[in-house]
Structures are given as structure tokens and as C-alpha cells.
Design a protein around this nucleic acid. Structure first.
Lengths: 358, 358
DNA sequence: TTCGACTTTGAGACCGGTCTCACGATAAAA
DNA sequence: TTTTATCGTGAGACCGGTCTCAAAGTCGAA
């Protein structure tokens, strides 16, 4: 690396010289601290203008220790859920004059770790993270700056957290399906779980995933459905193999008659897969998904969804975090936002099937 | 502002003391420059590990002048077009160890200006911008670091630019509509234009918008359609009033029989408006939109789209910019990526109408 | 007129790194 | 063995701000 061309930028000293005052005084005016007489102030301001002075935030941050930016690590900005949440965050941040450094983890812990390391090195004042995996959270515990969790709580991590009422949402949605007569209901999520499930709720310590599963299972139990655990499908992320798995699920002899999808990306994939299999919604399969993504209302049939207050989710974490940055030292808050089900046309009664023994 | 609690972090000096070498030597090891003997190196590394030393990127940036991050200013992250492009950018950036500071302009010049100012102050090494308005670009000319333009070219700004072949795309799409027999074709865009249009192509100097309109008009001219300029509708952004305008357009006596939408957000809005008016696609109205958003393939009917290589768009600008950061000083490049039309089911023949004089 | 209190200013240390320069030691060349 | 080159290291300046401290100046009250 050769010495950078480094356009010598205008510094406080330059302005000071131009205004014929000391560096300290110029800095006081430019930095907006301390007391300065009006005459000097205008002189400095004048000089700054003619020289086109622009403060170097980096240098400022160095001494103050505050960088004026927060880091946000999300799973996948492409997922409309996250883009909307991020907008909520950045809207709030802008109001406080804070800016947002965005990092994508791609839902991979290693990428998440690395992103956090980089952001910390950049001296972000605070961090908002959507933890990719719940098992591996040592790196989150080590974080030295204020941390807030978005959408996914971690019981072991006592920090500000904003989630939605996942359990109730899943419970209600599943109940809607059981009440329509469905017995073979699948829950499909992009989350990954190492190893087999088999009632290992305890091993899932990402709240979002666990709570939803708990709600799902509770509704199944209510309806007297046994072995519902077997119908929970992990790892349906954005990949071809995941799509193949879905097709497989739909083509099996004992395919589900109703599906609850964990997010709109998975749901869209499911929607396409259902079509590919020549199945009809809700004739052959009923579908409910988390997240009222824009497309869900324009399909035929439109999809019944669990409407999460996504923008508010982002807005709230950002507010919580920023409050914390301002010195608030109340104990961490865990905000749970309510959800609502928007009924559309994708839920029907249980279709009669070859497998039926009526 | 009281003195920040400022957890005294471990610095090179601390490590140096622990390893019993000079600060300069410790810095050489930790910073990975200069020459150090192996014995000393391991000793320093050891010390760094026991002390859990973490470099302060800010301080590093201060002296090197390089911050290792680039700023990205987009119109609206919520628009899937931009989220995808941003992913392209950040994927490339990560490979180079550069991180991305994201800012939303909300398509407003003032917000854009302010975002750029902040990012510059943060000493970003480079900037990728999707200029919100073409009229007001003085702030872009003043940018002191490498700048690259995404999706929208500005003729007056001779910098690296990556766009798509908007004119041909619009031409082909419009031609598809004229060849289906349509004569009243509207072009609906979220872009805003101050004042009236009336053949003022020259006043539009955002390439994307201008080129598309030029393509649109050319196709109309080919088909002998006169006064096509009157069917260009600006300002259909994400707002209620915009939706009302659309409804108005669709309910007018001489409503268009075919529409070309400038992006998927506008198109979705149009799709909903068309439904609200009780009109059918393609029976009453044909629709083509820019951007192959995921939902366009699952509607009934699925929408014919102009498929833009959005991820590649982001990837390319990022590559161009990073190359420039590495010292490349070739003249600015203007890359134009090709588009393709994906024909689906939203284009039909011209419906017979009361207004017809056959 | 003198003194204390307050305001305004300048000098210079400091933040945590990078980097230049000079010096002593060791190795290679004469 | 002496000279020259090379290597490893330490001292300290520097980046562009902030901030402490003390000196100088201003003012009203005693």
C-alpha cells in the first residue's frame, strides 16, 4: 500500500490560522462546545466557510469514544421482513443523527461473528442483532457495547429485546387450521436445527423458533393430534435443495393438508411448490404464513397471514438501543409486540384423501 | 455530555508493555507491517491474546486515511429492487473486507445530500449512489472520494456507472403492447418531475427515467400513436394520494388499455388498483412491469416483466468502485447491462371499448 | 482603587493507531 | 579484519479532532 494520495483536507488548525485564532478556539466554535465570544465565533465560521471546512468524524470519534453509528446485523436483507425492520431502525436512527452500518449474516453464525467483530472494531456505539443461531452465542455475550436483539430473543442473554407474540400467533393460526378440520398440519421454517427434533424444545433457544413451535404443538395437542413434532420441517431456506425437500413433502403419500410457514420467503417457495405439484389452495392444501408480505394479498387465492408489526419491531429496538446509548441504565426490557391474523382465502376445510379412514 | 464511561480498552501500548517491547514494535506485529523477528512476534501475539487486544479501526483509519468502508445511498431499501442490489454490493464488499454503510434517501434530494455529507464525514473510501433527482446534482459533483452510480446515470457526471438497457427494454415492452393492438398505453413511474412534461425529454437527465420514456415514445411513434407523452404519469410513489391518482386514471373514460410500470412497487399498486376497479388483466388492461419481483410470477395472471439483472447491477458497481479504490485510474466506465422480457400472462389484445370508433 | 468572580483565549496533552528515522547488531562482501 | 549492507528495534512525530488547565481580560462590588 503506497501512501494514499490523501487530498490534504481542511482541518481545525487551518481554519484557526485563517481566522487568526488558536486551534483550541477554532475547535470550540466548530465543535460547538465551550464558550466563545460572538466576534470570534463569526470570524471562525467565516473562515470555515471560505475554506470549505468539513469536520472529520473519525477524528472526533477517536477522542470522544463515540462513533455516532450503530451496527445492524440481520439474517438477510433481501427478506422483506428484514428490509422493513431495517427501515424502521434507520428512520429512528436518523432522527437521532445516528447512522446505521448494515451487515448481512446470511443466517450463518460465522458470518455473524465476523460482522460483529468488524462492527465492534469500527467502534459502533451499539449493536442490533438478529441472532442466526441460538446454540452459539458466546460471541454475543462478549459484546462490549450496548446490544439489542431484534425479533429473536435469547433467554440466556439479558439484553433489550423486541419480539412479537410468536407463540400466540402460531397457536391461533394452527387452531384456525385444526378447527377447519385439518389433522396433518406441517410447520415449515427456514431455521436450522442441528440433529433431529423429537420433542427437543429445550434445545431450541431462539425464542422465535421455539415459541412458534410451542404454539403450534399446543394447538395440535388441543385438537388431539399426536406426533405433531414429526411435521416440523427445518432448514427450508433459499436454496434449490430446500425447494426439492418441499416438493418431496408435498408429493408424499401422507402429505400435509395444511401448512404454516415461518416467513414470507418460505411461503412463496411453498406456494410455487404447491402449484408445481398441481395442488390447489385451499382445495388440497391450506396455507398460512407469518408476515403480511405485499404479495400475499394479490395471489389467487390471497394468503391468510399472521401480520407482524415489522416496522414497529425495528422502530422499537432502535428506540430501546438509542435510549440505552443516552445513558439509560434501567434493567433490560423485553418487549413483545402483538400480532394479528389477517384472514384471506387460503384456508379451507380438510380435503378428503386416499389416506382417510372415515 | 458527561465523560463517557469509556471502558478503557486494550491498546498497542498495553500489549507492548506486557510483551516488554516498544510500542512501535508491538504495533508492527499487530498492524502486520514492517519487519519483526519471530521471537518478538510470538511474544507480542501472546501478550495480545492474554490481554484480549482488539484493534481500534477508527484510530487506524485516522492515520491511514482509509476507513475500509463504503457508503451506499439508495432510494428505498424496502423496494426489493434495491435490497437485491444492496446484497450484490455487500457480497462483493465483504470479499474485499470492506463494509457497507447504508443510507436511505427516501428518494428525496435533501435526505440524499445529508446522507452523503454524513458518510463523507465518516471518511468512507467510496460512495455508491442512486441519485434521487437529476436536477439537483451539485452535491454529487462536490464529492471528494470515488463515486459510482447505481441504476441511474447522470450525463453530466463522468463517473463509473452501471445501468441497465432501459431504452431497449422499454421499447421492446411497449412494442409488445402495440403489437397486441393497444393504442392507449400508459407509462407509470414513481419518479417525480417538477412541472409539466410535454416533450421535455431534455429536462429529464436521470438516464433511467429518460431512456425508458424515450424507448416508450419511440415504440408509440413506430405504431403511429400520437400524443403518447400525455400518457406518461409521474410521481406514483408509495403514498395514498398516488394510489388515488391511479384509481382516477383507471376510472377515466379514456383509461389506458395497457400499462407499463417502472418498478415492481408501482406495479403491485397498479395491480391492486386494477382489481379495485373491477377490471381484469389482461381482459381489460394489459400490464408489463420493470423488475422480476418474486410476486410477479404467482399472481393470477402472472405478470409479464422486464427482467433486470439486479444482483449483477449491485455486484458490478461495487466491483467498479472497489477497483477504483485500489488505485485504478482508467477513465470512468459506463456499463449497461442487458435486460430480458419474461413473458407471462398479463398481456392480451386490445379490448373493445365504448370509445372505439372502428 | 483594589479584589474576587467570571469570561474568553491559548498552549499543549491526549485518543490509538501508523510511520519515519536513527541506531546498534549481525551478516555478507571486500 | 574492515567495510558495507541488512535487519530489528526504539523514540517520537503525526493524523484531526477534544478537552484540561492556566493565563489574560472584563466587570462589578467593596
Amino acid at each position: 500500500m503506497k501512501r494514499p494520495p490523501k487530498v490534504p483536507s481542511i482541518t481545525v488548525s487551518d481554519v484557526a490560522r485563517e481566522a487568526k485564532v488558536s486551534k483550541a478556539t477554532a475547535a470550540r466554535v466548530l465543535g460547538g462546545y465551550g464558550t466563545v465570544s460572538d466576534t470570534v465565533r463569526t470570524a471562525v465560521l467565516e473562515a470555515a466557510k471560505t475554506l470549505d471546512y468539513r469536520p472529520n468524524e473519525l477524528a472526533r470519534s477517536m477522542t470522544t469514544g463515540r462513533s455516532g453509528s450503530i451496527g445492524v446485523v440481520v439474517g438477510d436483507i433481501e427478506n422483506p421482513f428484514f428490509s422493513l425492520a431495517v427501515r424502521g431502525i434507520s428512520d429512528v436512527a436518523r432522527l437521532s443523527g445516528i447512522n446505521v452500518i448494515l451487515a448481512n449474516s446470511g443466517e450463518e453464525v460465522e458470518a455473524e461473528k465476523s460482522a460483529i467483530r468488524v462492527l465492534m472494531a469500527k467502534q459502533v456505539d451499539g449493536l442490533i442483532v438478529t441472532p442466526a443461531q441460538s446454540g452459539d452465542i458466546a460471541h454475543l455475550k462478549e459484546i462490549a457495547c450496548p446490544l439489542a436483539l431484534l425479533d429473536r430473543a435469547l433467554p440466556e442473554l439479558d439484553v433489550d429485546t423486541v419480539t412479537v407474540d410468536d407463540r400466540t400467533a402460531a397457536l391461533r393460526a394452527t387452531r384456525m387450521l385444526t378447527q377447519a378440520g385439518h389433522r396433518r398440519i406441517a410447520y415449515v421454517t427456514a431455521a436450522v436445527l442441528s440433529g433431529d427434533f423429537r420433542g427437543a424444545e429445550s434445545r431450541i433457544n431462539t425464542s422465535t423458533v421455539r415459541e412458534r413451535i410451542l404454539g403450534f404443538l399446543e394447538a395440535c395437542r388441543e385438537a388431539g393430534i399426536e406426533g405433531a413434532e414429526r411435521n416440523i420441517h427445518f432448514g427450508s431456506g433459499r436454496s434449490q435443495s430446500a425447494h426439492a425437500v418441499l416438493l418431496n413433502l408435498l408429493r408424499g403419500a401422507d402429505r400435509p393438508t395444511a401448512i404454516l410457514a415461518s416467513d414470507s420467503v418460505v411461503a412463496l417457495d411453498l406456494f410455487k411448490a404447491i402449484r408445481e405439484c398441481g395442488l390447489g389452495i385451499p382445495r388440497d392444501i391450506s396455507l398460512i404464513t407469518f408476515h403480511d408480505a405485499d404479495w400475499t394479498s394479490v395471489t389467487t387465492p390471497p394468503i391468510t397471514v399472521i401480520d407482524q408489526p415489522v416496522y414497529a419491531l425495528g422502530k422499537s429496538v432502535a428506540e430501546l438501543l438509542i435510549r440505552r446509548l443516552k445513558g439509560d441504565d434501567r434493567p433490560p426490557e423485553r418487549i413483545v409486540l402483538p400480532t394479528a391474523i389477517i384472514e384471506r382465502m387460503s384456508v379451507g376445510g380438510r380435503p378428503s384423501q386416499p389416506g382417510d379412514r372415515s
